[in-house]
Design a protein around this nucleic acid. Structure first.
Lengths: 252, 252
DNA sequence: AGCCGATCTGAGCGGAACTTGAGGATCACG
DNA sequence: CGTGATCCTCAAGTTCCGCTCAGATCGGCT
């Protein structure tokens, strides 16, 4: 049974490889998200039955890797991270992770969880090769359409112009900007930006979206999806078309 | 989306039913393991998409119920219990539970986990397994016949052309596309696409099917099955050969 | 306390989405 | 070939939902 381990810490990785190996897994070790995505491209070999996504500190990247994996494949993903707060858990699960385990964890439990997701049988590697990088998504301060979002300083600028945002506005934007194009449902937004489990009573969300739109002054950027939620329109004109690229699985 | 809640404490159950209902689940409440097992017997209704197994004190029974459920069905099971020790967790997971959540839990996280296990859909251990190549492809973008359905982005494109769909149209298409070729009964469609098991009064369903057909502009794609429901015609011209109608839904 | 910005709530508006009803087309079956 | 049931289309209603504005409430700061 093949398993893909994504882990940047060599020592942790070595230990895991050893244990997992002893339990019958054939482990492939990827040291970065990029390497992981490469490894997941179908190559005729037996596909991976589960991905163990364990990015130590740069967790932002972990989330991003997860959603990219999800964009092209249905492999079960277990996120393993030190970030134990509920927000992160919910966020990770909403991005498509199948399970979310926080460190420190019990090895036995991790194994049990791996088996639990693996026995569900991965949906057959989903769509063909296509859609490897349909959505360009920078790392670090993410940028698209002239918007620059600095998560650490919680600052946003449009075309160099600094735009002061309130807390909620920023969180909202940061969430949507995580995966431009993806539709975030209202409940999902509430559980990630507000305290989880909170149902917006009034027009709260709309009001904040409204003021966010005003401040950014980029018409059409934040799009409402009727009856569902909101999304950011990515800069590439036709993102949906996604270009099946009939002849060439042109990977950048 | 139907959900089976197994919970012996009336108050906890009531609260959960309320919250889950608000989040679009059609909840059936079983007060005991026995009742739960009864409820899981296939009865022609839409099957449960997930079981929330929350046995407060008589936990012994909880494990047993879980393994019995697993013996007869492939529904995803989430165990919710106060027993937090690693032993119990491992035991529960090894018995076939898909996730194990300990009280007290965060409602938002529970919801996220419910969605996570429901997302991948039950491996239908049910009867209708027949068709071998109609693996319900639950994750990632769906694609067939030049139609690309991206559920995350709620976008559909036909031969690269972006086709804007309304909520109902999209949900309808996404449902049918889950298993091309399989016939979805009207009631089933209503309970999936329209929340709460409300049987459509007028020509609602037909109208939506109509506009969906118009927008997709792929004649013959969405086929009406007289007196039953609708289905998508898969791209493989005729998986017909396998039409011995073994356990055919005898139309009397 | 008093100020001020941030957040929340409620009412009204406009438009998109949904529903309904009637008439015509099609199908299954005698 | 006739008949009833079922499905499709079209053109109204009707509901729902997101947007905006204005005022209320909350919370931090001096």
């Amino acid at each position: 049974m093949r398993l893909l381990l994504v882990e940047d810490d060599e020592r942790v990785a070595a230990a895991l490889v050893a244990v997992l190996g002893r339990h019958g897994f054939q482990v492939r070790h990827a040291r970065s998200g990029h390497e992981a995505l490469d490894a997941l491209v179908p190559d005729g070999n037996e596909p991976y039955r589960v991905v163990l996504l364990d990015l130590g500190l740069p967790d932002r990247d972990g989330f991003e890797v997860c959603s990219r994996i999800r964009a092209g494949s249905g492999v079960p993903v277990i996120m393993v991270t030190a970030r134990a707060d509920v927000r992160s858990r919910i966020h990770g699960l909403n991005l498509g992770a199948d399970d979310y385990v926080t460190k420190p964890y019990d090895m036995g439990e991790l194994l049990a969880r791996i088996h639990a997701v693996a026995r569900r049988g991965a949906a057959p590697a989903a769509v063909a090769v296509s859609a490897p990088d349909t959505v360009p998504q920078q790392r670090g301060p993410l940028e698209s359409r002239g918007i620059r979002i600095d998560r650490e300083r919680r600052r946003v600028s449009v075309d160099g112009r600094d735009v002061p945002l309130t807390r909620k506005e920023f969180d909202l934007l940061a969430l949507l900007a995580q995966s431009p194009g993806v539709v975030y449902r209202r409940e999902q937004i509430f559980s990630e930006v507000w305290r989880s489990g909170w149902e917006g009573n009034g027009r709260t969300l709309e009001v904040h979206i409204g003021s966010l739109r005003n401040k950014l002054a980029l018409p059409g950027l934040v799009e409402a999806v009727r009856g569902v939620g909101y999304r950011l329109i990515p800069d590439c004109p036709t993102p949906a078309a996604a270009e099946p690229a009939p002849s060439a699985p042109a990977e950048h």
